[in-house]
Each structure stands twice: as structure tokens, then as C-alpha cells.
Amino acid sequence: MRLTICWLYARTMNIYGDRGNVLALVERCRRRGIETEVVEIGVGELLEPGRCDLFFWGGGQDREQIAAAEDLQGPKGEVLRAEIERGVPLLAVCGGYQLLGRFYRPHEGPELPGLGVFDAWTVAGSQRMIGNVVVDSPDFGEVVGFENHSGRTFLGPRARPLGTVRIGYGNNGKDRTEGCRYHNAIGTYLHGPVLPKNPQLTDHLIACALTLHGWVGSLEPLDDALARVAHEEAVERARVERQALRRFWLLTRR
């Protein structure tokens, strides 16, 4: 078995530790004897239908995000949309996630059109939402990561969130939703190495990719002791930060 992992805009949209996600996908395949090939597809490069079994798309700075948005207005956007409809798994973080929604409205300048895969839209906010996040997901259990975004994403009636925020801001800091799902595509604000610390999410993406190849069965379990340690440690940090924030809040409002 061999999977082709497509890293969308790898050179321009990998703002913070996004490589960790690709490493996790490759390594968890390797340990199970599944070969992988990682192809990077950047601005102006062709995306062939049916070539890729799994997509990853990271976050980027404003300029890079605009370049990607323009790039997707062409045939590449059509192909990516069709691939998602076909059930190809995808993980999009931050900037990538925002561009899978209907539009992104920045502080200034024109609205960036999105692919509209998710029934969601994003509006630039004035305050950055930064910190450790813990999310409860109906399918993936406890998911932990770090968020850092000023865009506020709102979900439409047809959108299904990744989960509910237990600690942190999530999509918009208001409705406690985090991320979005459509078919096998997942968008999230949990940036950087979300997959290494949440192996259940990684395995879901791999399993979806294998299923498209006609594979049936369940993935061989791996030794996740270290991933669990890192996961628990991140959850603990989120807890400690929340307590500190509450104490500060109480002190300042007395």
C-alpha cells in the first residue's frame, strides 16, 4: 500500500510547526508498513485529479494567504473541491481552514473569496485569540493544541464543528465551537503539531485515505505512550493558564 500526501502551499503556508503534522502522517504510516510520498503543491502548480490520497494545508501570513486565495480561483480550486467531494481526507489549519470557508473579510482591502467547502465565513477581529486549547470532539475525544488567530470564523446552518471548546477560544471566542468538518475534510484553528499530540485524529485521516483505496479493516494500534504524555502535558498547561486567567479576572474585578 502506498499513499500520496499532498502538502498544499508547503513553502508559503507553514507558519508555525506545520511540518509536525506531515511528519506524524508519514511516520504513523511507516510504522504500519504503509509507504508514503509527500508532494508539495504551491502557487501556480498543477493539481491533478486523483493523484493525491490525503491533503494537508497549513497557515500563512497575510500576503501568502492572499496568493493562495487567488491561486484557488483557477482550475486548482475546482479540482480540490471535487477531491473533497470524492471523500479525500484533508486537514486545513488556520489560514487554510479560513480559505475553505465561503470568504475571509480582512480589516482592510477586498474580501478574499474561499472555496466554500465549509458553510462558514471568517471576519478579521481586532484582538488575537492566543493560547492552549482543549476541544471535546464527538468523534475524536479530547483534542489539544495551540491557537493564535485574529480571524473569527462563524459556522452556517449546514456546518458541522470539529468539537466544543472546553478551554480556549475556538472558532470565534463566542459560540464555543471549534473547527469545521465536511465529508472527510477537517478545518481547525489548532495550529502547528496538532497531529503528533492527537494520534486519533491522525489515524482517522490515514484510515479515510486507505478506505478510498478499497481497504477494509482497522488500523493496527501503535505505541502511543509518548504522544499521550505530550497530550496530557498540553492539557495541563491549558488548565494552569485558565486558572491563572481566572485568578487575574477575580483580582481585577474585586
Binding site: G20, P193, L226, V229, A230, E232, E233, R237
Partner: peptide
């Protein structure tokens, strides 16, 4: 404080 995160990174 993040001995686990760096340990996991090393393992990868």
C-alpha cells in the same frame, strides 16, 4: 515544563 513535547519531537 514541556519535557513531553520535546521528547515526542525527538522520537519523530
Amino acid at each position: 515544563i514541556r519535557s513531553g513535547e520535546i521528547a515526542l519531537r525527538l522520537a519523530y
